[in-house]
Design a binder for these strands. Structure first.
Length: 112
DNA sequence: CCGATGACTTGAA
DNA sequence: CTTCAAGCCATCG
């Protein structure tokens, strides 16, 4: 367990791992489910630090509120995130998820 | 304690 | 359409 053992991080990773296959969610949604949607930055940062975690975090299923793959620049290669998402049935055009409203997974409702 | 950073979000220019 | 600004919160040096 890395030193960064805050409830915020733990919940972020927990929710991230609970994202259903073929679904996506937003940083704000996760943050909102945890406590404050303003903590979206922490969620994204948690994804960055996910490398420090021994667990696999499907960060490719986490996008911003517009369904944009804002974090794809942090993935190896350049189309890794898009490939992973499309491999799960998510339609991605450029950096934008087409069927975002269809694959969007709201933890506050489905994980409730 | 302080300042800087960040894969966000919203709203305004 | 693009760009900027402010708000928020945890972590790091």
């Amino acid at each position: 367990m890395p030193k960064t053992g805050t409830d915020f991080f733990e919940r972020v990773y927990q929710v991230a791992e609970l994202i259903p296959h073929g679904r996506v969610t937003s940083y704000g949604a996760i943050a909102n489910y945890i406590g404050s949607y303003r903590g979206a930055r922490m969620v994204g940062w948690a994804m960055n630090k996910c490398s420090s975690w021994n667990k696999y975090i499907p960060a490719h299923r986490v996008v911003n509120s517009k369904g944009l793959l804002t974090g794809k620049h942090h993935f190896p290669g350049g189309e890794t995130m898009k490939e992973l998402l499309e491999n799960e049935g998510v339609i991605v055009e450029g950096n934008q998820i087409m069927n975002f409203s269809e694959v969007f997974w709201n933890p506050s409702e489905e994980l409730l």
